[in-house]
Amino acid sequence: MKVLVAVKRVIDYNVKVRVKPDNTGVDLANVKMAMNPFCEIAVEEAVRLKEKGVASEIVVVSIGPKASQEQIRTALALGADRGIHIETDEEVQSLEAAKLLKAVVEKEEPKLVILGKQSIDSDNNQTGQMLAALTGMGQGTFASEVAVDGDKVNVTREVDGGLMTVALNLPAVVTTDLRLNEPRYASLPNIMKAKKKPLESVSPADLGVEVAARLSTLKVEAPAARQAGIKVADVAELVDKLKNEAKVI
């Protein structure tokens, strides 16, 4: 079966994020960019499904500026077969991203679509669920285990207070949580091979989707800093302070 994986180019998770002095956003100039960590887990899961013989082809799709092709190449180096780049320099919000992905789903007809549960820039946690709604598919969000079984997929989900397993009819959408797998690193030969894998570029207009922002960001500020308190000498002083000064125990 064919698996579609969506990946996003975001600020590298090791980079210290700085708010621009004019409060219009976060400073992305000359900042290292990378594949969103939850998307790496999505790619890894697809590759494992292929290694198990469950998936026959992995198509990876990314939405964003020209440079997003780097992340598609990374996914190809990790084991995806073919890339689709939806090129736009506009800000694409979750609903529009879901509409663009829906157009790709209609064309490619994958049995399974795997996305990260959220991107570490906007932290929205929306696109997978919206795509599932727009395409009329079931969804297994925050997945820690994915098991394809005939025309169904069982997804174990990380929920408040524990785990919950659902059975979804295929085709279905899965969004990944941290413990689903541990992504591999791309080997040098695979990075070289990835450069020759097919990568198609399309525009939102080609897919018949108008990218229009529904939410406008009025300002972006740095969070209020918390003041460091005092160091205590030992446990006895700590307990005394908590009881008699802070009065929290």
Binding site: Q129, M130, T141
Partner: peptide
């Protein structure tokens, strides 16, 4: 914005063709 709300709410927004403001 617990795991239940995060799961179903974006689906609601998509069905209504509106954006969601998260968290």
């Amino acid at each position: 914005a617990g795991t239940t709300g995060k799961d179903f709410m974006p689906r609601v927004a998509a069905l209504l063709d509106v954006a969601q403001v998260s968290d």
